[in-house]
Design a protein around this nucleic acid. Structure first.
Lengths: 157, 157
DNA sequence: TATTGTTATACTCTATAACTATA
DNA sequence: TATAGTTATAGAGTATAACAATA
């Protein structure tokens, strides 16, 4: 293991949790949309993968199946997600955003992006490009399965 | 707000929570060191700022004072942190790592870094440099007060 | 028998509100 | 009166274990 890898890992371990904590604090403060970070990420995933299963979401988000089941339950009760038994395999569940879910997600995304953009705005253009490239580099290392889910039974009610 | 800022913000919002979730899962799986991500970050902060107060830690980590009080309580009970009343201002509390705390932190850091390095190792050298530079760019935007705490009453028992 | 998901239970994390002690 | 911290209480998030339904 070379030195640059270690240095890079150490920087990631120090900085990324601070960024996420800042996002969490901000999302909690903005009472407009009552979403936790995992709920937000789950809505995003379902939006990108209409008709996905519970397991798909759990694997992508990094939660156990029971935890995701509970999380989804909350989103269903809040009217943001539609959960239906799959017609092809009655063991499976089919997840879609409701109209409300899509708009709540869009609203939360907009608000969080606006705040995050404010934080980044003072940076020189070159720095923003560097950050963007870094994220693109890291994406495949940490986001598995981004587009592997078959799009079936999408209703997007 | 220009487009590159928005794009950059969107990428950060998508990728960093996934990285942190992966770190969380990994830290939980490695039962060697029973530390949550906030506990780990708090130990790191106290290690870098011996003799810091509860408020210092709370502000840096991004928790409320009661939440940090509870978190510290857990670390004290686990024998990782020494909490003493300040001699200069008896309202304040002075935090230091115990010997156990320092070694538990070092061990957790080592284990997590080893895993994280494995994830990064396949990347080309140039990409690692880009990621490292991105983290250095983001550090001052999201890590307040990194070195502002006066180092007093450090015992490091 | 294997797979998908849910329920039961418990523990951690975190917040707000109310309080104590010190300045 | 203001500040530093704790305690009380409650709610959300997550895990493991046990279960039910379907393939």
């Amino acid at each position: 293991m070379d030195a640059s890898t270690q240095t890079c890992a150490r920087a990631l371990l120090e900085i990324t949790p601070a960024i996420v904590q800042a996002i969490r604090v901000r999302m909690r403060a903005a009472r407009l949309h009552e979403l936790s970070v995992p709920q937000f990420r789950t809505l995003a995933f379902i939006g990108r993968h209409p008709g996905c299963s519970l397991s798909d979401a759990a694997e992508f988000i990094g939660l156990t199946l029971p935890s995701m089941s509970v999380l989804i339950n909350g989103l269903v009760e809040a009217g943001l997600v539609l959960r239906q038994t799959s017609l092809l395999d009655r063991r499976r569940v089919t997840l879609n955003l409701t109209g409300t879910g899509a708009s709540v997600y869009a609203h939360a995304l907009e608000g969080t992006l606006a705040w995050l953009s404010q934080q980044l705005e003072p940076l020189p253009e070159a720095d923003k490009q560097t950050v963007l490239r870094a994220m693109e580099i890291l994406r495949p290392q940490f986001l598995t399965n981004t587009d592997a889910t078959p799009i079936v039974e999408a209703t997007h009610a």
